[in-house]
Simulated assay, not measured.
Amino acid sequence: METMNEETLKLFDGDFEPFCQWKKDEHEILEIHLRGFKKQHLRVQVEEPGIVKITGERPIDGTLRRRFRKEIKIPKNCKTDEIRAKFSGDILQIILPKQTTAFPAKPGSTESITRSESMPSSYLLHIESSSSTLEMNTKLALQVAGVLAVVLAFGAYAYKYFHCGHVEG
């Protein structure tokens, strides 16, 4: 009988959604709270076109594991080649440096005003977990079933109304 090693027995306690918050200063910073994770459990990748993918997976006990996956859209005003990640304590920071544009304050003045746009929290694009995917698929199936029921009911009514009306006449 073949024995299974720990690598083949990876069981997942479940995907989870870590607490996240945006901080704004001279950069946009997404803070992801990851209690129990270590740097080697995390992966941050800049993907095309304009997406930062953050994934993590860690052992809980024995063969159980926890994991998450997040994707954020890189704003147009971000210096893509300067994006960096920093993990300290239980917090992973994704730092998105903003491009700044200098505008003169007044005609003839040497002062300038630096304009930077802020990134709304709607830039959080995609949170993938087995439970949220299942919920989305269930909602979609219910919507499709509802539309189908309405179409079938209308079709039966139209068939009865038009077909039976011509038979009598």
Rank of each mutant, 00 (worst) to 15 (best):
H27F: 09
I127R: 10
H163F: 14
T114D: 09
I51S: 07
G146I: 08
P75W: 02
S122F: 12
L148H: 12
S116K: 02
S116C: 05
K79E: 05
A102E: 14
G169N: 10
T8H: 13
E71R: 14
F103E: 07
L64T: 06
H163L: 10
E7L: 15
C20F: 04
E28L: 03
R69N: 06
K79G: 02
G36L: 02
S88A: 12
E48W: 15
T138M: 15
R43A: 11
S109T: 03
N5L: 13
P49F: 13
S109F: 00
S132K: 13
L148P: 04
P75D: 00
I51Q: 00
V52W: 01
N137I: 11
K39G: 07
I74R: 05
T110P: 06
E57L: 07
F16K: 01
A158H: 12
L96D: 03
K38A: 10
G36K: 01
L142S: 11
I72W: 06
E117I: 13
D25G: 04
N137S: 12
G62H: 08
E7F: 13
V167G: 02
M4V: 12
P75T: 01
S121D: 15
Y157G: 08
S118F: 10
Q45N: 13
F87K: 01
Q21H: 15
N77L: 11
S129C: 03
I54C: 01
K73N: 13
E7H: 14
I83Q: 03
N137A: 15
V150I: 08
F16A: 01
V167D: 10
G62M: 09
G14T: 03
Y157N: 10
Q93V: 00
F87Q: 02
T138R: 15
F16I: 02
L140C: 03
G62S: 05
S118A: 10
E111Q: 15
S129W: 03
T138F: 15
F103R: 04
H163I: 13
G62T: 05
L125E: 09
K86F: 06
K86R: 10
L134G: 08
P18M: 03
E31R: 06
P59K: 12
N5Q: 07
D13C: 08
P97T: 04
K38E: 08
T133C: 10
A141E: 14
T55K: 09
V151A: 11
I94A: 00
A153D: 05
D25L: 01
L140S: 01
I83S: 03
L140G: 08
D81Q: 08
P107G: 12
C78K: 00
S109E: 07
Q45P: 03
E128C: 11
L96A: 01
F37E: 02
Y157D: 07
K160C: 13
T114G: 09
T133I: 15
